[in-house]
Nucleic acid binder design. Structure first.
Lengths: 133, 133
DNA sequence: ATCTTATGTCATAAAAGCTCACATGTCAAT
DNA sequence: ATTGACATGTGAGCTTTTATGACATAAGAT
């Protein structure tokens, strides 16, 4: 099980996410409705959020506070993911060639993953991020 | 917010803990009834488990599989906590004296925290432990 | 054979979450 | 000033999840 898997593991009910992000249930559901997050569901249709989901919600919150609207935030996310994909592809190529100065690449990828959270992230996000590596 | 605080943050509903530990709700509640864990509660009285709780449950499971009964497990936990306290005290003394070869001490403390999980821990625990530092 | 320990199962009640619908505050454009 | 879009609040009705408590039982210990 790798880091990505762990960050995407569905763990939290909405009540916990509300506290972690200081968002209302309405807000969280609204952002999902607009395809900014895609929490998993239990068999009984209850939302289950991963660390990644929480992270994204904090990013949404920060961007909204900076005046970006949901459409803009969606774009930010898309671009971010593209960049990550490109880096991953490069990373895999390297792995096959066994060149593997992968440490540098991993670092770059991480920085990209966290791009968009330019500085002014909430305290909570700062704290939460420490759950990860 | 320090590492300890984070590990003790109430996050998971019992359903998630069931999957994480592969224990039944009955088992989890039974262990609580016998004071092996003390999950937090929501206002509405639902259990909320922390990473530490999950960790403890995995340890309980491992020890049970090794034939230790609940009374024995309780003792193991108590001894473990004692040791941690002693180390912490020493650590604080050092901090005041500003001697601070604290890295070594932290390491020792961590190893003690994880003592009792001698080797044969479950796969899941191994995976889960990677959430932490 | 009986007791203890750990766990399963079921009933009942309450909490938490879901969707849908309607209301509202804030801007920007007309 | 009016309209409209966006983001969010609120409430009703319903379903899922969890809690507690009681009773049942398998496996060991006495």
């Amino acid at each position: 099980m790798n880091d990505n898997t762990r960050r995407n593991m569905p763990l939290f009910p909405i009540s916990i996410v509300m506290k972690l992000t200081e968002l209302s249930a309405r807000q969280i559901r609204y952002y999902e409705e607009h395809d900014l997050i895609h929490p998993a569901r239990t068999e009984g249709n209850r939302r289950l959020f991963s660390f990644n989901d929480v992270d994204k919600l904090l990013e949404i919150k920060a961007l909204l506070e900076q005046g970006v609207n949901l459409a803009g935030i969606k774009r930010v996310f898309e671009l971010n993911e593209q960049a990550v994909n490109i880096l991953q592809a490069g990373h895999q190529m390297q792995a096959k060639k066994e060149v593997s100065d992968s440490a540098i690449h991993r670092r770059l990828k991480r920085e990209l993953m966290h791009a968009g959270r330019f500085g002014k992230t909430s305290l909570i996000q700062g704290e939460l991020s420490r759950f990860f590596h």
